[in-house]
Simulated assay, not measured.
Amino acid sequence: MASADPKAIAVEGLWKNNPALVQLLGLCPLLGVSNSVVNAIGLGFATLIVLTCSNLAVSLIRNHVTEAIRLPAFVMIIAAFTSCVELLMQAFTYELYQILGLFIPLIVTNCTVLGRADAFASKHSPLPSMLDGIMMGTGFALVLILLGAVREAIGQGTLFANMHLLFGSIAENWTITLIADYKKFLFAVLPPGAFVFMGFFIAIKNLIDAHQAAKASKEVATGSKRVRVTGQIS
């Protein structure tokens, strides 16, 4: 059973077991709509809400469903919260909802959401389950937003374009033009570009993990050597 320690849950969701960088789950929506920051924030926030609420609901019913209907019940819960998010987006961010299209209802089939419901929420109490949903959802959303920012910057030469689609008229002037008269780089905003940039992100994370592991091993070896030397002197 996964640890219910808050610090461990946070580290797992944000780094060690990040859904996008480690588990490689939910790649279809992640790569499909991450061509701008506003799209990434919209989908990331929607996934975060569904993941958190689903984890809480699954945790609350975990002792009241039989093994035979466990997974169908989880799917129904996820579908219900996805429908709520979809209706809210239709009501308040309709233009963004139209841009994201099928990727909002497809949150139901996101393996990250069902995976956390089955692997964590069905085995833990509500508070750790909610925290797990928040951290896993945040980890997924951060990767999505970072990918969206890189693709928008390289592909269009801007950042935070069309943010009014999500935040309203207050965000109409949030666009940052990085290069004036930029010749758009189409590859970056198409799905193949998303695969390439995602590969770079995964490689960078693996390099950081390898460096930290080597550093930890070196510290352990140094500590053991000091203990041996101290013992010989004594």
Rank of each mutant, 00 (worst) to 15 (best):
L60Q: 12
L56I: 14
P105G: 04
I179C: 04
H164K: 08
F45K: 09
A221K: 09
H64R: 10
M1Q: 08
A20M: 14
L127K: 11
D132Q: 13
A188F: 14
T138D: 10
P6V: 15
T52C: 01
P126A: 12
V196Q: 12
T109V: 14
F92H: 08
D209N: 09
S59K: 04
N206V: 13
V229D: 05
L56G: 10
A68E: 09
S217R: 08
F103H: 12
Q212L: 08
C111G: 02
M198R: 00
L106W: 02
G155D: 06
E172S: 04
F140R: 00
V227K: 10
F160W: 02
G157P: 09
L127W: 10
V143L: 15
K215V: 02
V229Y: 15
G223R: 13
L159G: 02
K7H: 14
N173S: 01
L48D: 03
L21I: 07
A117E: 07
A20I: 11
F140S: 00
Y182N: 10
M135E: 03
V75G: 06
Q23E: 11
G223Q: 03
A117G: 13
A10D: 12
G193I: 00
L144A: 13
C53Y: 11
E219H: 08
V85L: 05
F160A: 06
V38F: 00
I99D: 07
Q212Y: 15
N17L: 14
G155E: 08
D209H: 00
L56C: 14
T112K: 01
G133H: 12
Y97Q: 05
I104W: 01
L102I: 07
A149N: 00
G44C: 15
D181M: 05
I204D: 15
K215H: 03
M89Y: 06
I145Y: 03
G231K: 12
L142P: 00
V227F: 14
D5R: 15
I176T: 07
C84P: 10
G193A: 11
